[in-house]
Amino acid sequence: MEREKGWKMSEEAILSRKLRKALQLLLFQHHRLPGAKGWELRKALGKDYLNIIRILNKKLEDLGLEIKIIHESKEEEDLDKARFYIVFKSISEELSSWRIDTLAILAVSIAYIATKNSVKKQELQELLKEKFPDWKIDQELNMFIRRGYLEEKDENLYIGWRTKAEVDIKKLIESIAGYNIS
């Protein structure tokens, strides 16, 4: 009985250690990008890393956080190549440190690019010009590109890795359009 209790304790201790390790890997930025790749988690936590992630996700739920898995591409399903992030489930207006103009420009940029898949930078600038000055648009677009919300290739703008991880694009577009999309 005592032996069984000891064995159970050590199993709990191992799980607790793995949960701490997983949390550290996901929270501390140890590469250029935050979060961790599936293979990194497997290497650090072992074969049952998905189970550890599931338990951690359950614990994070109480804190208003959740683990999000972003695949390299829509077609890619290999979890080893996917990136795991911890994201906030929701964010209140008071706590967002960004100015309202910045948030509005980002909302427009993401929604406009997402419906077209990509747009010419100039085309988006023209749309934004109706409500914001040139200098503000340039400043904000450059910031979004730097932070990974948008991606720039050959004068075209695309949705960046951070938007894929942080923004519920479908919800954003539906809210702007005012109806649900299939």
Binding site: L27, E66, Y85, I86, V87, I100, I110, L127, V167
Partner: peptide, 29 residues
């Protein structure tokens, strides 16, 4: 449709919509 909606929406509305679909990554540097 999106383009025309964007044009008539106030920036406060757009910011509020964005915040409701935004789940920022939590990480520590």
């Amino acid at each position: 449709i999106i383009e025309s909606k964007i044009k008539i929406m106030k920036k406060e509305e757009l910011a509020s919509i964005f915040l409701s679909s935004w789940h920022p990554i939590a990480y520590i540097e």
